[in-house]
């Protein structure tokens, strides 16, 4: 590990990197705790009886009884003072226990892992697909700014970016599932089920990233060091490959990380439209049911994932441009 790390971050910077990671982890844990606590406070501030909503979520509105509501209230301790409920959650958390869902009665971590795996799978696929689309297009546009491809891509990107994802999804379903019958319209069982939701995500993400990539390429190509490389006799492509890619990649990596962070907390609309059991779907249902432990657990996990993805992006940027360590004591 240390050999690989020293090859990635040259010049004995591993110690600095480790310090950055440790500091960020502490920040992330504290942020996640604050997030979870805010979730708790917001849910408590909502009007209405939580026990009633939990009982209704378990059995459906028609089948709720006074007894089932009373049972939920007593068994889940919802009749205790709010601060006692919060203290109990903190106490359990200190022992590494996120508690259990008040609706399904399953451990929160288990529910999060189950839904998280679907969201991560779909999110990663959509994210990778978006860059498979955006990278070649963005670079090609950056090489010919103002050309027909650049103008066409810009128009398409603006259209896609301004369109809500459910519209894109409905369009894809109409074309590929209902008209051409190539792909299933919803579900989560096979690879084929993932194509349309992943493409819906990818198109939405690529609409933004293609412009970021295009602008980064244009900026880098106009930089002095690129002119210098050309003066030294390198072709445009060779100069870009040797001197441009690394520099252009820095803003793109930062933006890509932000986009990935955006996908990890789930896509409510896409998940609902495609009946995909991800974190967004879980969060919405938990909110409607006032499933406090699930909401708090999800808040923590999403916060930690955001922090982890941002940390990875920073590390990638340091790897791409080790000068960034200079100000951090390396």
């Amino acid at each position: 590990m240390s050999a690989a790390r020293s090859s990635f971050w040259p010049g004995g910077a591993a110690g600095t990197v480790l310090r950055i990671v440790a500091s960020r982890l502490v920040q992330a844990v504290l942020t996640a705790l604050v997030l979870a606590s805010l979730c708790f406070a917001f849910v408590q501030a909502l009007p209405g009886d939580a026990a009633l909503r939990i009982a209704a979520a378990r059995s459906g509105d028609d089948r709720v009884t006074a007894e089932s509501v009373a049972r939920v209230r007593e068994q889940e301790g919802l009749d205790r003072p709010v601060l006692a409920q919060y203290a109990s959650w903190i106490g359990r958390l200190a022992q590494g226990d996120l508690g259990h869902s008040l609706v399904s009665r399953q451990p929160v971590w288990q529910e999060l892992a189950e839904h998280g795996r679907f969201t991560l799978g779909l999110g990663a696929l959509g994210w990778l697909l978006s860059y498979a689309i955006a990278l070649p297009l963005g670079i090609a546009c950056g090489f010919r700014p103002g050309g027909w491809l650049d103008r066409g891509t810009n128009a398409l990107a603006v259209a896609l970016a301004s369109m809500p994802s459910f519209l894109v999804g409905i369009g894809l379903i109409s074309l590929f599932a209902l008209t051409l019958r190539w792909l299933p319209p919803a579900g989560f069982r096979t690879g084929a089920h993932m194509v349309l939701p992943a493409l819906t995500l990818a198109l939405g993400l690529a609409a933004f990233s293609v412009r970021i990539i295009r602008n980064a390429v244009v900026e880098v190509r106009g930089a002095f060091y690129m002119t210098f490389a050309r003066i030294r006799g390198r072709s445009a492509g060779s100069a870009f490959l040797h001197h441009g890619v690394r520099n252009a990649a820095i803003p793109v990596a930062t933006f890509a990380a932000l986009q990935f962070a955006y996908v990890v907390d789930g896509f409510v609309v896409v998940e609902t439209l495609f009946n995909y059991p991800g974190l967004g779907d879980l969060l919405v249902k938990s909110l409607l049911a006032r499933d406090v432990p699930m909401i708090m657990g999800a808040g923590m996990v999403v916060g930690l994932m955001y922090a982890a993805v941002n940390l990875l992006a920073d590390l990638a940027c340091i790897g791409l441009d080790p000068r960034r360590l200079a100000g951090r004591g390396a």
Binding site: S7, G121, A124, L125, F188, R189, T190, G191, H193
Partner: peptide
């Protein structure tokens, strides 16, 4: 350095594919 990055990228692709493919293997009809 570039080799390591490639390895990282390959790992990420393989991980996403595994996550994506798991439902396929587990739930084929």
């Amino acid at each position: 350095t570039p080799l390591d990055r490639r390895a990282l990228l390959s790992g990420a692709l393989a991980g996403a594919a595994a996550l994506a493919a798991r439902p396929t293997l587990a739930q084929a009809a």
